[in-house]
Design a protein around this nucleic acid. Structure first.
Lengths: 172, 172, 172, 172
DNA sequence: CATGAATGAGAATTCATTCAT
DNA sequence: CATGAATGAATTCTCATTCAT
């Protein structure tokens, strides 16, 4: 792994578990086994490193979401989307944790993770004869958000029951 | 308002909108129109001030929840609990924002806001002939959590539609 | 004991065991079981309290020395002066400790404890047929200083042997 | 001189003339013509800088003492040891002043400067037919301590007379 | 590409002191 | 006489960042 990637990886881990201000560049450098000056060779400043991580996370999350977008059938798409929070590889947890936590930070405007699939969710729910598609869509997103957050924070085991429960509830 | 309360109030506002480390005691003092030394007369240190705010928030949130606990009828209780996030007085938003955000902080173990009413939710759902009470309860709590978080972060207006939608969905 | 004396007593104890700057007025007040504001009612400022203690110590030490000055006989006076460091009441140790330590503090010019009896020492040594009275006097004072300092710092027990040794050495 | 040594040197000078707490890191930095942050790059904290100085002083004092230890003849060794306080190079005064003053500080246990030569003093006094070697040794050390302290605090000039006086007294 | 040395700005905290009561 | 509330100044220490090598 290149030193730049060592820095990114260390920073991601630290930022995902700690506040921005609580993660000093020195700590990042130490965790990355790199001199602290090197951080400023690769990134304009701490904030820029943070921004790069945001972009990286966005990209990785988007990629994961894209994997289920090609599902044309409504039922199987909904099943996929409900399973999504449970199927995230644990090595990607930091990206999600980091990104989701961002919503509490006023300075960064982040988009909802589900933005890209919102329409497809609506479409699928429609095909399943749901009324009030907009609200059903919004509700499902709220649920997905909750599942994901719980999994990221506490692990997937305790949440697994809800996967089957929801699949059954939506008759998928 | 006593100077101690000025400090608490300023700190709550700042902490609810910013990271712990990003809120300096000087900023708190300035917002509270008080010398920063005074903070340390009233609180052992910054962390103690933070802890006091956690306890205060816990108490205030608990009080609000308690207000709906005396509702004996299942249907009206569920209605109340769904309306709860929408009925929070805006002046209490900082307490909720502050407290809910805490879940991202590893050092502080916080309880779920709904802990105190979880049993009553189960009981009420049972009385409404729901199957799989445990999971229905968990799901509803996930939804409530999502509603609350959205309201706290973005205001209640955009979420209002979900209040009526859920009341209707649960046939209350 | 008056509160003023409580302050003086607490301050003496603390100053005798710690540096000036390491003894905060708050600690003095706590030890004296008094509010810290009271210190400034009785003393203009911390430095003044310190100065008062210097004067007090000087007086007490002078009083103790005076007790042996009335000894007219050379031999018995020398015996008395050698015994002096061993005869100090332990409750007066703080005064001595406090005062002797002062010599390391550039801002305060303190006189030697033996100043008042220097002439009498010379006189007594002369009566015992010593040559080079001035230097013998200076040497004895160096020895007395050393004894006293050791006793104050480590207790008298380990030094007791030197009392008899010196009395014998000076054939008293 | 390296900046680290500038810091050590400035700190030694300041600490040897002032209390620990009265020597701020800023003053050290100013005297060393260095930013105060640099102090904390080279030393974990102020206390660590102090500790390093203690070790340095111990080493330097030990080295000076070692220089006279190789004197095998009793008489000439005693002469050397009596001359020792007068032969200290003035540029080393701060080390001695700093180290000797330490005995008033409860937190630091320091050894007597003469520890390393105590046996040799006993041995030499024995060879000169003194009785009660132990006490004679102790007494001489008290005298040496007194001489050294006076020299360090007030300069050697006024004490010089005692050098010749003692050499004569011990018939060296 | 990589680092060690260096620093200015800012953080939390302590302290001596004042003042109203 | 005694205290609680309040503060400005100072202190130790951390941090993001720069620069020479």
């Amino acid at each position: 792994m290149s030193k730049k990637n060592q820095i990114l990886s260390a920073a991601l881990f630290l930022f995902s578990n700690n506040e921005y201000a609580a993660v000093s560049t020195i700590k990042i450098a130490q965790k990355a086994k790199v001199s602290d000056a090197l951080i400023f060779k690769h990134f304009k400043n701490k904030n820029n490193l943070y921004t790069v991580l945001i972009e990286q996370s966005e990209k990785i999350i988007k990629n994961q979401i894209d994997d289920i977008k090609n599902c044309v059938d409504g039922k199987s798409f909904l099943k996929k989307i409900i399973e999504f929070p449970f199927d995230i590889s644990e090595e990607n947890y930091p990206y999600f944790k980091f990104y989701i936590k961002l919503k509490w930070n006023q300075q960064f405007k982040t988009k909802s993770i589900w933005n890209e699939v919102k329409d497809q969710i609506s479409f699928s729910l429609d095909s399943l004869q749901f009324d009030d598609i907009d609200k059903e869509t919004g509700l499902l997103i709220i649920i997905l958000d909750g599942l994901l957050e719980n999994i990221i924070l506490n692990g997937k085991i305790s949440m697994l029951q809800y996967k089957y429960f929801l699949i059954h509830k939506y008759t998928l």
